[in-house]
């Protein structure tokens, strides 16, 4: 039930957004995070929980350096 899926914001309408899930357009609530068209977002139960950041790669490789040295 905590399933959340990533999609791409195509339009923002006040507190709602149109999110594209591989071709399926779904309306989602956008009140919990600042979003703009083009953002990749994580949607749970019809609600945008977070914007996907691009930092991921860097921060994981830094963490792994630390883990490897254990």
């Amino acid at each position: 039930m905590c399933v959340a899926l990533p999609g791409k914001v195509v339009r923002v309408d006040g507190t709602k957004a149109q999110v594209d899930f591989s071709g399926n357009l779904v309306t989602a609530e956008a009140g919990l995070v600042k979003i703009k068209p083009g953002d990749y977002v994580l949607v749970h139960a019809g609600c945008i929980l977070q914007v996907l950041s691009e930092e991921e790669g860097n921060s994981i490789s830094a963490l792994f350096k630390e883990i490897e040295s254990l």
């Binding site: 929980l49 977070q50 914007v51 950041s53 691009e54 930092e55 921060s59 963490l63 883990i67």
Partner: peptide, 8 residues
């Protein structure tokens, strides 16, 4: 540790 930093 946080290994899901794209959203967490």
């Amino acid at each position: 540790l946080n290994l899901y930093p794209s959203v967490v």
